[in-house]
Write a protein that binds this DNA or RNA. Structure first.
Lengths: 169, 169
DNA sequence: CAAGATACGTCAGCCTTGTTGACATTCCAA
DNA sequence: TTGGAATGTCAACAAGGCTGACGTATCTTG
């Protein structure tokens, strides 16, 4: 567990010490706070929460996605998601269209109003991300992405990779 | 906003496109889920939540820390933290010692039982982090840390850097 | 065509963890 | 001695998770 550089490893494994890992864990914790801080402020003004942000984000990213697919991605129960979606539809940010091929499905789309809020949120979040990327540099960004990807559950990695559109990576 | 490589930037700024930033945002989202998944399972068995994990972690990391300091780090209200601490003390995982210099302060320590749970949680989380680090390699880990650090609020970065003990980075 | 499976919505009730506001206690420091 | 700091605690509330149960279209399959 507590590593001294073994005969096989030497300097090359120092980044796997418990202490380094602890720092990584705390870095994730503190960084995630920063990551959500700016959108949270905007959301609070309008009486929405992170759950609404997540729904808006993934509908924006994959317009026409179904409720079931969203459930998969977000990993919450349909009751929980439904409460959020209902509110977004009542408020006219999201619109559900009956599927043409399978009429049981509801295909979700943002309205202009929904797109506007989503943009405000993602602009704020992207600004922070952009600043961090710029400060760290392209090399660091590549490493950042590699570690995050390796940290995901395989099923989540599938969803993540599935989001490559034109211009993805 | 939507960048084409400008005359000044060229290839070097492609990592700052909106699409790259969106992928970074989703990577954070999906990775954080993986990051908390293993401890969450252990916590659920014992009817604790993430809030308890966070408290245990930061008490373990800085034994003797005060309630006020913990409030600072965790960024929640004292009522919220108090509920969690009370439960941990009732269950005999955490012990509060009256300060010797300033007797208003409570210095928090883990009991053996608390240390045991904290270790189980952090072992699980470290295992995942170690696997990710190993898969990505030392170079990537360095980048990972740089980006996360740049993403923190300055005040959180202070707390983060303050946690360097012997062997930190 | 009938029966079962699927996609979705919804009601009811519960829990954790966050919030605000108010107030008490204890103790340090000027 | 008095003001303010550090802490604890009560009450009430909200967001957003959860489970369980049930209803209704709609599709699919035997």
């Amino acid at each position: 567990m507590a590593e001294r550089p073994g005969p096989q490893g030497g300097q090359g494994l120092l980044f796997l010490t418990d202490e380094q890992l602890r720092k990584g864990i705390e870095a994730m914790f503190f960084a995630y706070r920063g990551f959500t801080a700016d959108p949270d402020r905007i959301l609070a003004e309008q009486d929405y929460g992170r759950a609404h942000h997540r729904a808006l984000h993934f509908i924006q990213r994959s317009p026409g996605t179904t409720v079931g697919n969203l459930l998969d991605i977000l990993g919450v129960t349909k009751q929980s998601l439904n409460r959020v979606l209902r509110r977004l539809m009542e408020d006219g940010l999201v619109e559900a269209r009956v599927g043409r091929e399978d009429r049981r499905e509801r295909h979700l789309h943002l309205t202009d109003k929904g797109r506007a809020l989503e943009k405000a949120l993602s602009d704020a979040q992207r600004d922070r991300m952009r600043a961090a990327y710029r400060a760290a540099g392209p090399q660091a960004v590549q490493g950042f992405r590699q570690v995050l990807e390796a940290m995901m559950d395989p099923e989540m990695r599938r969803h993540f990779e599935a989001s490559d559109k034109a211009g993805g990576r």
